[in-house]
Design a binder for these strands. Sequence first.
RNA 1: GCGAAGGUGGCGGAAUGGCAGACGCGCUGGUUUCAGGUACCAGUGGGGUAACACUCGUAAGGGUUCAAGUCCCUUCCUUCGCACCA
Length: 847
Amino acid sequence: MRLGEFLGEPCYAAPMSETNERAAEDRYEPATLEPKWQAYWEAHRCFEAKRTPGKPKLYALDMVPYPSGSGLHVGHPEGYTATDIVSRARRMQGYDVLHPMGWDAFGLPAEQHAIQTGTHPRDTTASNIATFKRQLKSLGFSYDWSREVDTTDPGYVRWTQWIFLKLFEKGLAFQSEVPVNWCPELGTVLANEEVIDGKSERGQHPVVRLPLRQWMLRITQYADRLDAELDGLDWPETKGKQRHWIGRSEGAEIDFAIEGHDATMTVFTTRPDTVPGVTYVVLAPEHPLVAQITTAAQREAVSAYLDVTKSKSDLERTELGKTKTGVATGAFAVNPVNGDKIPVWVGDYVLAHYGTGAVMAVPAHDERDHAFAKTYGLPIVQVVRRADGKAHDFDAAAFTDDGVSTALRSDAKVAEGTPSAEVRKQVIAWLESEKRGRKKVTYRLRDWVFSRQRYWGEPIPIYFPVDCDGDPRAEGAEYKVRYDKPIAVTESELPLRLPELEDYRPGEDPAGPLARAKDWRFFQKDGQWYARETNTMPQWAGSCWYYLRYIDPRNDEQIFSQEAYDAWMPVDLYVGGSEHAVLHLLYARFWHKALFDIGVVKHAEPFHKLVHQGMILGENGEKMSKSRGNVINPDDVVKSHGADSLRVYEMFMGPLEAVKPWQTNGVEGVRRFLDRVWNVAVAATKSGDAAMDDETKRAVHKTIKKVTEDVEGLRFNTAVSAMMILVKQLQALPAVPKGAVEPLVLLLAPFAPHIAEELWQRLGHGESLTYAPWPTFDAALCEDAEVEIGVQVNGKARSVLRLAKDESQESAVAKALADAKVTAHTDGKTVAKVIYVPGRILNLIVK
RNA sequence: GCGAAGGUGGCGGAAUGGCAGACGCGCUGGUUUCAGGUACCAGUGGGGUAACACUCGUAAGGGUUCAAGUCCCUUCCUUCGCACCA
């Protein structure tokens, strides 16, 4: 019998003429139905986050987007759909849900647009936000828009500045004149994290190191906690990236006396066990001792070397790092454990900004030292041998692993054959007792350069006294800003707003464009002139704490109320791109810990569970970009197939975390699935109350179980697959029972909320399904009493048997031996062994 | 170079150590249609067969096991981080 023969009314395989007669209202038309439900949700404020005592809560957070001029990209809805599904499912499961959205809207593009067109960055930002918001709304995300946050809003900036003042009070914000990453092209300094291979992360412009007065945040003070407290977090490999960036390293600082000088040079090493093998020491070219100790004979060679080094950019110094260069200073140091006289060299493979800017060289046990020693003919002295006794060719390469000590010529007595780890302890103890060194932990992490020479950012709420005769604003006035005497703006005067400017261009002047707003910059109080800080905060500032403002976004009295904090924090699920692994996510953790220390927040960590959605590539498998012409615009997909199809497709593509290419045919496949859901559900509304057979009932319960568990585990692709299977099965029924369709519609709702609402209504429900109870499953119905299990003979699959789930072994074997496909392989042989796992496998071993 | 993740049909991808390839795309055939499209039905890893049978298959090679995509070892490749961090 073919299916078409017993399908009665309503018929989805109906002939054309009948289809045409079918009422328009019976067709699935996302273009009319989606705006209808979006308007409904908005009018009924369905997603406003409210807290009810006793109920569990979910704080599901998307990384705050930068509203760029090009609008939403298909990558955005991927993570947003994931958090939306979890939010919607949890609402149905009785959770109070906070699911907010906002704008990280300070930043360079709007400022550059302003330079080119004269449009105020505020206007550009507002129109970009409007575009983003329209697009996000068209996708049906269940955000509580009443909590929308904009980092450029004065009501928000006020609290960003407030946090800065707290950091300033605690000594965590300070000024420093250190070499920083100055990018002439962008007219600003950049954080270490924003410089990649000597170029700006944004725009790939060259970056040079210049000493400039800067505001810094003392993130290094939190290095240890930022590292250690990653432990309890449910985060992916990002933890490892942060650990590496923080770069905690345990070792010792060791002092080397310099012959003929009072000065000692201090090195940091993780291998104090190799000190007896030190055959020379190396200073970074920038090290202050270089000038002091260089001998007359070497002066010329050293200064020539320093000149060459200076002319190299950071990029060249690291890229050409294969051959190590250096020059002897002519001075000698004394090995602190055996008194050996060893030469002091200068070499640019030693980094001025790590450790002490000086290293002890152990060519036998460090690759870099080995290469350097080979180049300049310096001695190689072995002090560690392999624990397994195997030989090592020290002429060819360094032996860098731990091993055991050789007979050492050392005043720090260590027994021959002691394991390296133990030697380290003993040597450190000896150095400490001799006051020639000490145990030390260093970090790769640097303090955070926090000022930018830009307009479109939060003004730093600090001002300075000005030494000046008369009005410093006067043309040609001479004045001196006393940067050594920073004064905090009074809290009640916050927010400190940006001045209006004619010209947003960065100057060559590192004071930045705000310095040109003289009436804003200078002010007089009690006869004394003062100057405001003209640098602004980096874009990261606003996104460091936005998740805290969502919990109480309109509070004018406090950053947020304690009740709001207790109601919603911490963030339960945080989804965003992995490109923020060491930038935003580290900065935000740092601010959170600083706020924790002053009692503003109550958890040491803000984000409990973190997930990075994988990038969506173009159809050709390449990264989407305008220049490659492979960009998919979500607006177009919404227009052609609807928001629900876009959402479901993006979830169906593959695992959330995976990088995966877009396939337009795939969207069409999902659209067909939604069409089938529609047809099946509409059929159910007309089929009266068809009874549900046992098999259908089981299928429904299995699907509920699968989708429930997959949503929990963020395995959305397999959840969609499970629903597809159920729909196929329902579609084949002569009459579709409402009792099967209703749970299906509820399961689908978080994924495809518009079609689900529409069908829910058509199934006779008067209210939105936003808070309809999530379907539950009966575990007993999820397991079949009878299952098909594979029958193997000698490990090879030979047949399939339908057996009771708990069929006894005797019975199973008997049934197998009654099967011709099995006996074909067992005849004439004896069954030597039976492996039987009920419900899984039957394997007969025959001889 | 170091670190992490991974390599399964034509494609995206499924598989608590238990019938590999769920689901979707694509493709083939069919029904409906004047036709195309849609919708629906059937098929779709390779070899082999009229059809079965059988056989080979999860990057390559070895191992553990009654049984390996899954566990272990070696090698190759891909992607993503980091890259003189002493």
